[in-house]
Write a protein that binds this DNA or RNA. Structure first.
Lengths: 351, 351
DNA sequence: TTGTAAGCGTTATCAC
DNA sequence: GTGATAACGCTTACAA
């Protein structure tokens, strides 16, 4: 059975090109392109022949050639401050799964500051990514490059404060988070609450702090100025704060009940871990004497004793929305806010 | 001043192509290509003119066209089990910095099992990555695809056991890790040690377990079969193990000194955290009564009290070696082993 | 050293 | 709906 001219460049190696497939299927390269890219509805004999030939030759499109001609790279750019940061890592995992479904791939840029992130944006744009997803570094002002590139490709900003009418934004509804946290505590009998806030980008923290006080008032809960404070997201900080708040031990708590909160809201699981250690040291029981809520639902939250109630960022939804907004194109920017999920565990419920 | 024909497509937008630059600099596109890609040594007037024109037009090469013609994509593929896994995340951060220096970019694939990882390898290879770096998922056997693709592009495997003569491998010298850990403990007066090993891929753990015993013998240290065990890498596990080992409290320790180890080697920082909590609960002091060493140098290790001595994986070196091996091409596979760094903190030293 | 021109593999356009 | 053909923007023989 003599092969047609040009039919086979060692069938099985990956170096087959569209002309080989076309020759083997006895159609033109144009038809092959149309069939394989789904631009041709029918599933007739021709379509089957093309697909058969393609798989026989182990053919896959040359992305470079395709991108050159069609300006579609099937590549999504993702810029994050660091892969070791929890939200970024989770988003990476979720996004990778989603984009793979559409046989797209993630091109990664990592930058901890404004300058580096801007540079990465430029690099990725130079590669003609089909979309850009960005978690801005803490304190970075990316307004200018965002504005500039938004005209060329859809951009989705995840979290952060900087609003732009050209780029989309998907963020966590921190106010809802605070509301559901307080509501949960109230429903389990809490009367007074302390808040160990995060200190970083001040505006965001300040807003949350205000929301905390709003919730305190609306549920008629007690709090005190010197209970609440801004600070780092470390175990150490949680430990010190809890020691300061509860340091006198159990006996004295009963003497002066109102001088101590019966619940602690922490800006981060790590802070909660520290507080748990401190309470354990002091001899106060969780949740009987003090209830604790963390933030982030770190993997370690399920391994403490008791397990830590925590707010889980809606990363799956964030990824899905980001994906959707990019598919929608640069013309229709939207701002979306998603509430986290309160994962209730032993640190706020008895039994 | 009439522009030369073809000179400017709205100078400033990014749609400038090499022909525009050539026209503006009054040279051929070939020369522009040579100058900008560094294939032309001299820094004469021509070179300057070309660079000036390029920057005036805000020109950057079209990667798709470049890749199509030259088969170099300036793209490195990276496959990891999950971005939320510590080693993967750190490697991501380190690699991204390194490849950026050569204006390459990372194309990411994430897969937790053999099937997914194999599929991601195929996707990335289909994109003609210039190299592939892989952290194999626990228990995944990638021998077949590795062997297959190693002929087309340089591949570096990070960690793991599967050896191949076609692919390079960079891994952590766990035996050296065990050796330096024990040596450090000995130098601080420890006489008996318990080892809380990791349980996963059994072969690796078993080898380390053997190395532990070798070190015990060579330093004449005491250990007991029921002190050491395999298990999960969780806080909970560390807590339970330590309670089991030390549960009787301080008084009894002094009664039956040799029945308790005076140091704990943990397969993971999380296990060490759990053990620290347990010891605190029991009333034993770290490091005076028990010394503890973790593994992984997690960010939390520096926030415990006392801070945790831990082994830091040589991620920076791993990234650099991987990068180098990929630059070297597929023809020269090498197997490299790098020792971790022992970060000594308060959990093993007084003061 | 420089310019000319031929591709790289694909998709879009245009006839049919 | 299909096939011929012209781009897409770049790199690299080859010729000058």
């Amino acid at each position: 059975m003599p092969a047609k001219p040009m039919a086979t460049p060692a069938a099985g190696t990956s170096s087959a090109s569209i002309t080989n497939v076309a020759a083997l299927a006895n159609v033109s390269t144009a038809t092959v392109s149309r069939v394989l890219s789904g631009k041709r509805a029918k599933d007739d004999d021709i379509a089957r022949r093309v697909r058969a030939a393609a798989s026989a030759l182990n053919y896959s499109v040359n992305y470079a050639a395709s991108a050159l001609r069609s300006d579609v790279t099937n590549t999504i750019g993702l810029i994050i401050p660091s892969a070791t940061e929890s939200l970024s890592a989770q988003l990476l995992d979720e996004l990778e799964q989603l984009v793979d479904v559409e046989s797209q791939q993630l091109l990664l840029g990592i930058g901890r500051d404004q300058a580096t992130q801007t540079e990465r944006m430029e690099s990725l744009m130079a590669r003609n990514v089909d979309g850009l997803i960005i978690i801005a570094a803490s304190g970075a002002d990316l307004a200018a490059p965002l504005e500039r590139f938004a005209q060329q490709t859809p951009i989705v900003q995840v979290g952060g404060r900087q609003r732009s009418f050209r780029t989309s934004m998907v963020s966590i509804d921190e106010n809802a988070a605070m509301e559901m946290t307080v509501r949960h505590l109230v429903s389990s009998g809490v009367r007074s609450v302390a808040y160990l806030a995060g200190k970083e980008v001040s505006f965001e923290s300040a807003e949350l702090f205000a929301m905390f006080h709003t919730q305190m008032r609306s549920y008629s809960l007690a709090t005190a100025n010197d209970w609440n404070q801004f600070g780092e997201r470390t175990v150490q900080r949680g430990f010190h704060c809890a020691m300061r708040l509860f340091g006198y031990g159990r006996e004295e708590i009963t003497d002066d009940f109102r001088a101590r909160p019966d619940a602690l809201i922490c800006c981060d699981d790590t802070v909660a871990f520290g507080a748990m250690i401190a309470l354990d040291t002091i001899g106060l029981r969780i949740p009987q004497d003090v209830r604790i809520v963390g933030y982030g639902d770190s993997p370690l939250a399920a391994t403490t004793m008791p397990q830590l109630t925590s707010l889980r960022p809606p990363v799956g939804q964030i990824a899905a929305e980001a994906r959707r907004l990019i598919a929608a194109g640069p013309a229709s920017p939207a701002h979306i806010t998603l509430p986290p999920q309160l994962v209730v565990r032993g640190s706020t419920t008895v039994g």
